[in-house]
Simulated scan of single mutants.
Amino acid sequence: MAASTRAQVISLYRMLLRESGKFPSYNYRTYALRRVRDAFRANRKVDDPKTVERLMEEGEQTLALIQRQ
């Protein structure tokens, strides 16, 4: 993974964690945080650029969804 892609992934991860932590309900907050961490852990070893790009798009859509909540 290129350094710029790695930085983008880390940035997306941090934004998802930050936005998930803003849920007022404890249950929603912990669920969202757990889902974000688990998704990034599950895809930690992905090296294919097309797969990384697809996962980044899914993450950005998820971020937009969390921000609308």
Score class of each variant (00 low, 15 high):
residue 28 Y to Q: 13
residue 12 L to R: 02
residue 39 A to S: 14
residue 55 L to M: 05
residue 41 R to Y: 10
residue 48 D to Q: 11
residue 27 N to W: 04
residue 46 V to H: 00
residue 9 V to L: 10
residue 5 T to L: 02
residue 10 I to A: 10
residue 53 E to L: 13
residue 48 D to F: 07
residue 45 K to G: 12
residue 51 T to M: 10
residue 66 I to G: 01
residue 6 R to S: 03
residue 1 M to A: 09
residue 42 A to T: 11
residue 42 A to W: 15
residue 61 Q to M: 13
residue 42 A to L: 15
residue 68 R to Y: 06
residue 46 V to D: 03
residue 9 V to M: 09
residue 20 S to E: 04
residue 51 T to A: 12
residue 8 Q to T: 00
residue 13 Y to M: 03
residue 1 M to D: 08
residue 66 I to V: 10
residue 56 M to P: 03
residue 18 R to W: 11
residue 69 Q to W: 05
residue 12 L to K: 02
residue 10 I to K: 13
residue 59 G to L: 01
residue 64 A to E: 04
residue 59 G to F: 00
residue 28 Y to F: 12
residue 46 V to F: 00
residue 15 M to V: 13
residue 40 F to T: 08
residue 7 A to E: 09
residue 15 M to D: 15
residue 52 V to C: 06
residue 11 S to I: 06
residue 66 I to S: 01
residue 3 A to N: 12
residue 36 V to N: 02
residue 52 V to W: 02
residue 29 R to H: 07
residue 59 G to E: 02
residue 33 L to I: 12
residue 29 R to P: 03
residue 57 E to P: 01
residue 24 P to C: 08
residue 20 S to Y: 00
residue 8 Q to E: 07
residue 57 E to I: 04
residue 25 S to N: 11
residue 31 Y to K: 01
residue 58 E to M: 11
residue 62 T to M: 13
residue 19 E to D: 14
residue 39 A to I: 13
residue 18 R to M: 12
residue 43 N to D: 03
residue 64 A to N: 03
residue 42 A to K: 15
residue 1 M to S: 10
residue 67 Q to F: 07
residue 36 V to F: 07
residue 30 T to Q: 14
residue 65 L to C: 02
residue 48 D to V: 01
residue 15 M to G: 06
residue 35 R to Y: 10
residue 38 D to P: 06
residue 41 R to D: 09
residue 6 R to Q: 05
residue 2 A to R: 08
residue 25 S to L: 08
residue 5 T to F: 01
residue 49 P to M: 01
residue 49 P to G: 00
residue 30 T to S: 14
residue 61 Q to D: 12
residue 2 A to F: 11
residue 59 G to Q: 03
residue 39 A to H: 15
residue 61 Q to W: 11
residue 34 R to K: 12
